[in-house]
Amino acid sequence: MTADHDADGELLDDETLEKLQALEARAYAAFDAGDLADAAILFGQLVEWTPDIPHLHYMRGLAHKYLREWALSLQDNLRSEQLRDEVDEATAWNAGIAATGAGDWAEARRQWTRCGITLPEGEGPINGNFGVACVRLNPWSSGETVYMRRLDPVRARLENVPLAESGFRFGDIVLHDGASTGRRTHGEREVPVFNAMQRLQQSDMATYAVFVQCGSPDDIAALRAMTLPGIGLVEDWTHSVRHLCLRCSYGAPHQHDDDSHEDDGGWVRERNLGIAAQGRAAVEKLMSAWAAAGTGRTLDAIEHREHPQQGPQPGQVWWLGHEQADE
């Protein structure tokens, strides 16, 4: 504790101060263990006793942030801000994240300006170009990593076709955390990786798993170059998704008898594609046109499954990067 007076300005006796210090230790322990609801309650009890300590409001706001309770998190961070004599960047960033999650665009713009970030002029949602980065979807479970185009400091549009199991879609607008948890290569440079907090706006592009056979990379390039109404993006998952056999999981016909591997310089005829589209008819039309335009092109199956998004469970400390978690 950094104060020795209670809410009424009365001097705390040694016994009460010792109890509050023990309560603060319990609050931090609960937070560090991922017991966020308990942490929020315990920090709230501390705030009732000593309401003028800014870091206690900040910590309760941090617990509400990772519970994704945006209005409560914003309220705590604004109180933390009011109690400080100068700008605290961590408080401002968390207030900006909470305001964005709550859709309070005026407050979000105010906080980013306080952080020295230049924004596009206007009111309402910020639609700027803050560059390309990566985002870990569902960081509390599978943690699939995809690229995104950042619209503001913590809001972005997904640029890849995620696996349907993630519950996310190509073109979704997501809220991500402000602290990077790693780096990934994008072209010839590295870009930061952020944890996704939640989806803010769902895309109209559903995800279709499409299984084909073809003779060369030119066939896939030709497919990706085709444009049809209702098609958002075609992505070759054969390389990017390696932790499970997609064909087995979808029941698509194939055999595990091909010993050739592209990592060894060979071409695997069986390709697993992710196609973002507004409907199955658009995918069928695309694949029919592609198969008819070249020899040796075979469509094995088109599958579509919707999966609900799953939130974190109590006891998960999902917001840390690998280096922080190791510590």
Rank of each mutant, 00 (worst) to 15 (best):
G279W: 04
N272F: 05
E24S: 08
H254A: 11
Q201C: 04
E18D: 11
A225T: 08
D257A: 13
N195K: 07
L223N: 02
A222E: 12
E235A: 12
A291Q: 13
D4L: 13
N160T: 04
V174F: 05
A196Y: 01
D13K: 04
T181P: 00
R189W: 01
P54A: 07
T100R: 07
L200M: 11
A33I: 00
V191S: 01
E107T: 15
I220L: 15
A27L: 02
D300M: 09
Q309E: 15
D204W: 08
R84A: 08
D326M: 13
M287L: 14
Q82E: 15
D6A: 06
A282N: 09
A276D: 06
G167H: 06
W237P: 03
R184L: 02
G296Y: 08
G116V: 07
G171C: 04
Q309R: 15
A281H: 13
E121N: 07
G251P: 11
F194T: 00
M287G: 02
F43T: 03
A90D: 15
G187W: 01
G279V: 02
I41W: 05
T118K: 14
L20D: 06
A293P: 07
E159L: 12
A3T: 10
R60I: 05
Q198V: 08
V47C: 12
E270C: 03
G122L: 03
A225D: 15
E327S: 10
D76K: 03
M205Y: 15
D88N: 15
V268F: 06
A196P: 00
L62G: 02
R68K: 11
M226D: 10
Y58K: 10
Q278H: 12
Q202N: 06
D263C: 09
G101D: 01
Q313F: 10
A40S: 13
A222M: 10
E69C: 05
Q111L: 12
W237S: 04
L11F: 11
R199L: 06
T227V: 11
A282P: 08
R242C: 09
E18I: 02
R184K: 10
L163Q: 09
F168L: 06
H186P: 00
R184G: 00
M197F: 07
A196C: 14
H64E: 09
V191P: 00
I53C: 04
R84N: 10
Q278L: 08
L36W: 06
A95F: 10
W237I: 02
Y66W: 15
A281I: 05
W290T: 01
R26L: 10
A95I: 06
D204G: 06
L223Y: 03
A325L: 10
H239S: 13
A156C: 07
R136D: 03
G178P: 00
H5E: 13
D13F: 05
W49G: 00
Q213P: 00
A29V: 00
G167I: 04
M205F: 15
R149K: 12
A209C: 11
L72R: 11
A252S: 15
E123C: 03
G178I: 00
Y66L: 02
L175H: 01
D263T: 10
T2V: 13
H322W: 13
S249Y: 12
S216W: 09
I97K: 05
L56R: 14
L56V: 08
P308T: 01
A289R: 15
P312V: 01
